[in-house]
Design a protein around this nucleic acid. Structure first.
Lengths: 162, 162
DNA sequence: GAGCTTCTACTCGGATACGCCCTGTCCGAGTCCGGCAGG
DNA sequence: CCTGCCGGACTCGGACAGGGCGTATCCGAGTAGAAGCTC
């Protein structure tokens, strides 16, 4: 059970966008160059973020993506679910009902399957961690990690590309 | 990101085995009938559990599977990892290093990527829940949920099949 | 009747096809900017 | 010089192939038990 690389790309791209002024539009082409990933495929990832309402898009020259709302109101969970979907990691098929000794409609099956319950708890724990991390936090951490020189260079690189 | 149905099957089969006396061997055929799943495919799942050392196998007539150790020393995580593997859910490709403004070997990359860090925390939280649930607990819960009549019938069903 | 041999039936384990989803690519619809002609 | 128009280039979005992994199945190696033969 591994997440697709799209999730990683989406998180990094969102972090980049969070570091930009709100009036700047960054096209997929620039994001793909910056991260050195296939442009068209990254575009597919951005589509998902757009469909989820996390980013706004603008067409035409000087167009691109920007955050649809403040980075402090966007969580990791929002991004991961936008790309990976909201399905639970464990989908219970209720095979316990196939016990040949108990009718499938027995009332003992009214309560949720104990195994599925545990798996769902684990799923919830996973989502909880992601939900508590805001995009604004990670953007800030990245900026603090880099030297002022690096931030300046990167900023210039983007300005040159836009 | 969804777990395969093998995980569900494995968990249910292990629960069944946990409810059996230790000297009873249950073949894959019986387990498959009980859960109404393809025998040969379930067998593949049991192979994984066997390879992980969670169950013991015996060949020939009256052969089958039984727990390799006490159900109180087996956790959900053991079972899930035996089937699904131990790879982390998020595999960081370090695309941050592709930033064209910073050399790939820069010391700023010595600390783990902040994004990967969060994703790994979520992964850990998920595993933690699974690790805390013992197989013996779920087996007991199932037994308590069922009526005495159901337990008796199911027990008889297995005895007839063995 | 007891013991050994043989044979069968049953078990697990690995090797083998099939299908779906992730990965990766391509092309078209729509839009904004810049140039150009006309007033 | 200002205004309106037009063309081009750039953007996103959805439609289109290829590959890897999960799904499902089959067959062989090995073993335990039962049956049969001999003593």
């Amino acid at each position: 059970m591994t997440l697709g690389n799209q999730v990683e790309w989406g998180l990094h791209c969102m972090t980049v966008l969070a570091g930009m002024p709100h009036d700047v539009l960054v096209p997929a082409k620039v994001l793909s160059e910056f991260h050195d990933v296939p442009k068209d495929y990254l575009s597919k990832c951005m589509q998902a973020l757009s469909a989820a309402g996390l980013v706004e898009t603008t067409l035409g020259p000087k167009g691109g993506y920007r955050l649809a709302r403040s980075a402090s109101t966007i969580t990791f969970l929002d991004i991961v679910e936008a790309i990976e979907g909201t399905k639970k990691t464990f989908n219970c098929q209720e095979i316990r009902r196939n016990n040949p000794c108990i009718p499938k409609n027995s009332k003992v099956y009214s309560s949720t399957c104990g195994i599925a319950s545990v798996m769902n708890q684990a799923d919830q724990a996973w989502r909880q961690v992601l939900k508590q991390k805001k995009l604004s936090e990670i953007a800030k951490e990245v900026e603090q990690l880099l030297d002022a020189d690096h931030v300046k260079k990167t900023s210039e690189w983007f300005q040159k590309k836009l």
